[in-house]
Amino acid sequence: MPIEVRSALPHDAEAMAELLNRIISAGGTTAYRQPFDGAGIVSEFIEPKLGICCHIASDELGTCGFQALLWCDPDWTGPDKLPSDWAVIATYVDPDRHGKGVGRALFGCTSVAAKNAGVSYIDATIRRENTGGLGYYSRMGFVDYRSGGESVSKRFALK
């Protein structure tokens, strides 16, 4: 099945919410605990204030994943503040399509957008129990740089 990747648009939000809500309800692979509606997907991923890009992947069966990239929050006052030229990434792939190249196809587009935006590093902070996510980011070239009680932070160098 060929995978098509394009920029996500507001009319994609319902399908993206359905996918993310299935992942949330399964538990253990995302920090999100509450389900999303279409408006929440638009504000959090498709058109966020600090957004760089959001890509959606589809195949003949429909939406199979999405990936968003946002600038680090310059007003963050909590722990582990990141430099202003860093971005954070979030990836969601249909569990039935893991290992089918969806994440790789998404990251191909996201990394180009990151380079074009002038991002120096991409941060991926992953829950420890999300072994699939940890493996995915490692395969994409991310390396560990920080570890906490519940998560591991990996970074990808663009410069």
Rank of each mutant, 00 (worst) to 15 (best):
G38T: 09
A15P: 11
S7Y: 08
V112G: 00
E60G: 01
D144P: 03
V5N: 12
R155I: 05
V42K: 12
I56R: 13
K154M: 14
V93C: 07
I89W: 01
I122P: 02
K159H: 02
G148Q: 12
E4F: 04
K100D: 05
Y137Q: 14
R22K: 09
L134Y: 04
K81R: 14
L20G: 00
N21H: 04
T110Y: 05
S153G: 02
I56T: 11
Y32C: 00
M16I: 13
P48M: 05
L106V: 07
D75Q: 05
A15L: 13
R128L: 12
M1P: 09
Y32I: 05
S7R: 15
A13W: 10
A105T: 09
I24A: 03
A68N: 12
C54N: 09
I23M: 04
I46W: 08
C64N: 06
P10H: 08
V93A: 02
A114R: 09
V143F: 00
I56L: 14
Y136M: 12
L61I: 03
G149Y: 06
L9M: 10
A117S: 11
G148P: 03
I24Q: 11
P48Y: 06
S120E: 15
R6D: 02
G27W: 12
H11K: 13
G40I: 08
V112F: 01
G118M: 10
N130G: 03
A8V: 12
N130I: 03
T77S: 03
V143D: 08
F66T: 10
Y145P: 07
N116I: 00
S111Q: 15
F107R: 09
G101V: 11
L158D: 06
D12T: 06
G118Y: 06
W86E: 02
S147V: 14
G132P: 14
P2L: 06
S120Q: 12
L70R: 14
Q34W: 04
S151Q: 14
S153R: 15
G78R: 13
G40M: 13
L82T: 03
S25F: 04
W76M: 01
N116S: 08
I24H: 08
T91L: 10
A57N: 15
F45E: 06
T29V: 07
Q67T: 04
I3W: 01
S151H: 13
E18K: 08
G118I: 01
Q34C: 00
H11W: 06
A26T: 14
G51L: 09
F45T: 04
Y137I: 11
A124F: 04
P2R: 14
V5H: 13
V119D: 01
V88T: 14
V119C: 02
W86F: 03
S120C: 07
G51Y: 10
A157T: 04
T63H: 05
L82A: 09
Q67E: 11
Y92V: 08
E60Y: 01
C72V: 13
L70A: 04
S58W: 08
R33A: 01
S138T: 15
Y32L: 06
G99R: 13
A68C: 06
D123V: 08
L70T: 13
V119P: 02
I3T: 07
L61C: 03
A31I: 09
R33P: 00
R139C: 00
P74T: 05
W76N: 04
G133T: 05
G101N: 14
N130D: 11
A13T: 03
